[in-house]
Design a protein around this nucleic acid. Structure first.
Length: 103
DNA sequence: ATGGTGACTTGGC
DNA sequence: TGCCAAGCCACCA
């Protein structure tokens, strides 16, 4: 599959994440049929246009943390969006046991 | 070609 | 929990 096709798959997976739930980059990769491509997912997400409708904020890393510097603008943006949909974020961390989405 | 760099993950201590 | 080393994928200087 080509680049665009990979992006489309990743977008589709992210778009399917229900409100109030989160998934890890690796999980997105798996669901998109691209195991071990977590980094690709991270890179793809980082290049999303600022006005995208995709719920990219529901994607976090395997340790349950927001993958961005705590002081960054993006960090705050993601945190706000998550809390807005009742996802508990403490110290940039989310409890995967409770909020991880399992299709 | 070659080494460095991420919005990553896993295993070990 | 936290830090590290390796493995991993795509990109770029």
């Amino acid at each position: 599959m080509n680049e665009i096709e990979q992006e489309q798959r990743i977008y589709a997976v992210i778009a399917s994440i229900p409100r109030g739930a989160v998934v890890t980059y690796g999980q997105v990769a798996d669901l998109a049929g691209m195991p071990r491509a977590a980094r690709l997912v991270g890179r793809t997400v980082s290049k999303l246009p600022g006005d995208t409708r995709l719920p990219w904020h529901r994607v976090i890393n395997a340790t349950g943390k927001i993958s961005m510097p705590r002081e960054s603008l993006g960090f705050d943006r993601q945190k706000e969006r998550l809390q807005e949909e009742d996802v508990v974020v403490t110290n940039g961390r989310i409890d995967l046991k409770e909020f991880r989405w399992q299709p």
